[in-house]
Every structure is written in structure tokens, then in C-alpha cells.
Design a binder for these strands. Structure first.
Lengths: 277, 277
DNA sequence: GTTGATCGTCCACATGGTGGACAAGCGGGA
DNA sequence: TCCCGCTTGTCCACCATGTGGACGATCAAC
């Protein structure tokens, strides 16, 4: 219900990729600013036209916003003309992170996961109907998936991290999330329809951890465990990605156990506010 | 030259505290958004009217921006109606911090300083003509100064961190910074005029570290050492604060040495990209 | 040289933001 | 209880501000 914008009449097909329709009230330039920042974050680095496309803005408008944001230090521009998140966001983020100390506490657990399993490990956070990848720790295994990267936003339900979180939500919230992400999921392919997601969610409810059997990129598998914030909500996730052959039983079971253990320790750390040993 | 806005005619006395006049080109709503975010960050938590005052916006306008930003998750609103930085800023900041990994590397050095000296230690960053306090580590000594806190922005030259950075700038940049901060410094009191700042800067150039002998709040002293980024610029600072009696010689000399040592190690870590031992 | 893509900029239009003014809520003091 | 001073949220007429179609410049590839 937090970000549930009312949809007037039928879902009018968006012309391009314009996703957000947060024009609830007041200043909508703010919404565009947020969309631009998120688009740059998700891309890591992007050109003006790419941002215009991914936000649904016209190119002149995107250009004006981008330059204005860069003028404020919220964005940087590298030599080639690509945009990236700026220093000012580091400063604001550092202050904001005090109220949400999750990442600092997560880093050691992430490292431990990567070391123990040899796969690449990720820390992600839920916000609204999306899951944002926040940090990556490389594993030692030389074949690595680069589907996920810091800043990437995916709707709940398409990656293992989002699935793990979905699996710990009560039915009502699960249905709401499915409804809210339905359109975006369908754009990512038929393998993300409700039936498939529900199947993977039931797996989470049975085993505690989630499995993404190559649903985003063929052969790139993922597993995740939900992490609970101080109020007991599944707000974060720890996940592992790698190639199919390393995510089959019985190794699958070992990985699941390792994920659950670190997720549990991290949840405890978040609850007590103190880093675990 | 980065943020040097041209001043039309005489410096028309600002009615309230309106500081920034970044209306160089394009969208100026973006400038207001940035100002609001910075104001909230600096206050930690603030009411609508306070933000309106500190940004120079009218209250309805501030209110609209604040609610719009909260709608995007960039701000939160607690039960009492106060605003604080939101979760979305944590996410954006985490991605942005990858390109500026200073804080992660600074934390252990900060802790070490606080432990070794018993005073509270701070990590700050320069941006434009300001220094922003980013992280605090409490010392063991029971009398602590709370003048500095995370998010606070001060013009270069009024606190020990800014002084340490000023002292490592070439003359030309020093003069530019003095000119750019002159008005704001004068608002903070006559003890921050050019002559006094120059005197403290010369101290930095002689000893390597800076000393703020209670220039912001009487009896609250500070010392700092500059930290250099990968390109060799003095972009950050480590500092200590405490009561006057603990910042006199010969202890002053010990504190300065400790600051310089940690600052040097941190600078090395920033240059090599790897955390020091 | 030609094509095809990007980029940055201009300017008339009207959309969307502005802020003075009003109303409501809250607590303290008499 | 009433009044006062403080806050906050909201309205709406005005016009400043942002918008985006269109143009010209730039660059790389073929």
C-alpha cells in the first residue's frame, strides 16, 4: 500500500519503457529527478539518450535534468560524456545510512559467504515492489555471472533475492506484490508469470531459501535467503549466483544452509544494532 | 571556480539564511531539491518550517518539495512530523560510494584515533567551499563536544577539518576559498575573519595539522589532519575534538602526531585502493 | 563523401510551480 | 473555558518556468 498508485481505468500501454506513474500530487519534477537518479544508479554509467529512454523522458528534458543534477554534484560526467552518480550522493547517503545501518553490518557476512562457497555473493534491499542490488563480493570460482550488479533494480519475484523476500511475506502482501509487479514481470519474459513465481515462492516457504533456476539468463542460477530488519520485516536478502552445475543437489543444500546461517546472523545483528562475531 | 556564482551588483543582504544562488542555468527546481536534501542532512531531523528557513524557501514551497521527496522515498517522516533522510538515499548512496570508497576505508582509522586518544574523532569531506562531517567515533573521555555531528556542513576555514584542508591548498586556491566563504564566515562571528583564518592556515603549513582553539564554541577545541585522495588532492580530513585542557601542549603534539599518522595511512589506502593494516 | 548516430541548444507555448492567504490542530497560560 | 501563539496542511489565481519539437554541430563508421 505504500507505493500503490491508483491506476485510472485500464492500464494504458506505456509507449516506451516509462514505468513509474507517481504523479499522485504536487511537484512532479521531483519524481522525474528521482527516476533519473535511479536510472543512472541502475545503469552504473549511462549516456544521455539511454537515460531518456529508460525514464520515458524526452531527450532535451533528460539532458536538462542531468546537467542540473551534475551542477549540484548529485551526478558526475566522465570524459566520454557518460553520467554516473556524484560525490554529493555519497555524502547524503553516508548520513542517511546512519538510520539504516544494514550495509555496514552486511559486508562481513557477504565476504564470508563468498569465501565459504566460492560463488559471488550479493546483498540486496527491498524498496516498494523492487529489489535493489547493493553490494557484490566476488567468489573464487573463475566462471562468474554478471547479470547482477550494484544499483540494479528488479521487480520482486524475478531474482532469487526478491523471491526469498516474497516467500516470507503474508499472503495478503504477497498478492499485492504480485499484482504490482505483474506488468513489469511480463515484460521480462513468460517465465516470470504468476504461476512460476508462486511455485518458487512455495519452495521458499518450504526450505527457507529461494532458488532461481536460470530464469533471468539461461544457465545463471541464484539462491537467496531473506534478512529481517529490526522490526522483523524481510527487507534485505543475501544471495549467491553462479553456473547451473554448481547449484545442483547436493551442493544446493550446502549453499542453502550457508545462506540461512549468514542471513540469520545478519538479522540478529540488525535487531541488536551490533555487529556479530 | 566550481561553484563560483556571479554576484549581480552589490551583495544584497539575504532576508533570512538563504545561502545558495546556484541559478546558473536550466532547471532550478533541482537546485532547490538539492538544498532541501542538504538542509535535512545537516539538521539530522527537522520540521517543515525549519527547512523553509534554512533554505530560504517559502513554507508552502518547502512543504511541497518535502512531501514530494518523501513520496519518492528520498525523505522519511517520523511520527512527530519531523523529516529525515530516507531509505532511497541509502540505496543511491551505496551505489555512489563505489566510486568514492573513502568512508569505508576511513572507519578503522577513525576508530583507532578515538581509541588511542580518548577524544571523539571525525571523518569529514570537502565539497566545493564546504566541509561535511561524515562519521563520528566516540572517545572514552566522558566530557564530549557535540558541536560537530554527521551531515553538518561548515564553510572551509571555520573548523579544524576545513583548516587542515585549506592549509594544503596552493595560494591561488586558498584565496579563492577565502573569498567564496567570506560572507558565510562573517555570519558565524568576527573570530572567523580572513586574518584569523590565515593565521591558523600558516600554523597548518608549519606543523602539518590544524588547530581550532575554541573558535566555534568556547572551550571546544579541535585538531585535524588532511587526507589526500587518489589524485593527490586534500579532499578529506580526520579530526579530534574535546575540551581545551586536553588540547594544550605537550598533549597537543601527541594528538597531532596521531592525526598525521592515521591521515597518512588513510591517504595511502585511498591511493592504492586497498585497506591498510 | 555520405550515412547514421549521438550530442547540445534554441525558443514559442502552456503547463506546472509559486506563495500569499485562509483554516485547522495543538499546547500552554490565565 | 477562552484566548493566544505556535505550528501544519491546503487552496487557487497568476505568471514564471519547464517543456519538447526542431535545428545545427560533432563524431565514427563505411
Amino acid at each position: 500500500m505504500a507505493g500503490a498508485a491508483e491506476q485510472p481505468g485500464g492500464a494504458e500501454l506505456a509507449p516506451s519503457t516509462s514505468s513509474r506513474a507517481t504523479a499522485t500530487s504536487g511537484t512532479q519534477v521531483v519524481g522525474r529527478v528521482a527516476a533519473v537518479l535511479q536510472a543512472v544508479a541502475a545503469a552504473g554509467t549511462a549516456r544521455t539518450a539511454e537515460i531518456a529512454r529508460s525514464t520515458g523522458l524526452t531527450r532535451p528534458t533528460a539532458h536538462r535534468l542531468l546537467t542540473a543534477l551534475a551542477h549540484e554534484g548529485l551526478l558526475d560526467r566522465d570524459g566520454t560524456g557518460s553520467w554516473a552518480l556524484g560525490f554529493e550522493l555519497t555524502l547524503l547517503g553516508a548520513v542517511a545510512a546512519q538510520r539504516y545501518p544494514a550495509q555496514d553490518l552486511a559486508t562481513p557476512h557477504l565476504r564470508r559467504l563468498a569465501e565459504a562457497t566460492g560463488e559471488s555473493a550479493f546483498f540486496s534491499a527491498r524498496r516498494g515492489d523492487e529489489v535493489i542490488c547493493l553490494e557484490r563480493a566476488e567468489g573464487s570460482f573463475p566462471v562468474r555471472s554478471h547479470v547482477l550488479h550494484e544499483g540494479l533494480r528488479l521487480p520482486l519475484g524475478v531474482a532469487s533475492a526478491g523471491l526469498a523476500i516474497l516467500g516470507h511475506l503474508p499472503d495478503e502482501q504477497l498478492e499485492a506484490a504480485l499484482a504490482a509487479t505483474r506488468e513489469r514481470r511480463s515484460q521480462l519474459g513468460p517465465q516470470h508469470d504468476d504461476a512460476h513465481v508462486r511455485h518458487l515462492v512455495s519452495h521458499v516457504r518450504e526450505h527457507g531459501w529461494s532458488l532461481n533456476p536460470g530464469r533471468i539468463v539461461e544457465g545463471s542460477w541464484g539462491m537467496a535467503a531473506a534478512v529481517f530488519d529490526a522490526s522483523g520485516q524481510p527487507r534485505y536478502a543475501l544471495s549467491l549466483t553462479g553456473i547451473e552445475s554448481r547449484f545442483r543437489p547436493p551442493r544446493q543444500h550446502q549453499l542453502g544452509t550457508a545462506l540461512l546461517e549468514q542471513a540469520h546472523r545478519l538479522s540478529t545483528a540488525l535487531r541488536t544494532g551490533r555487529a556479530a562475531s
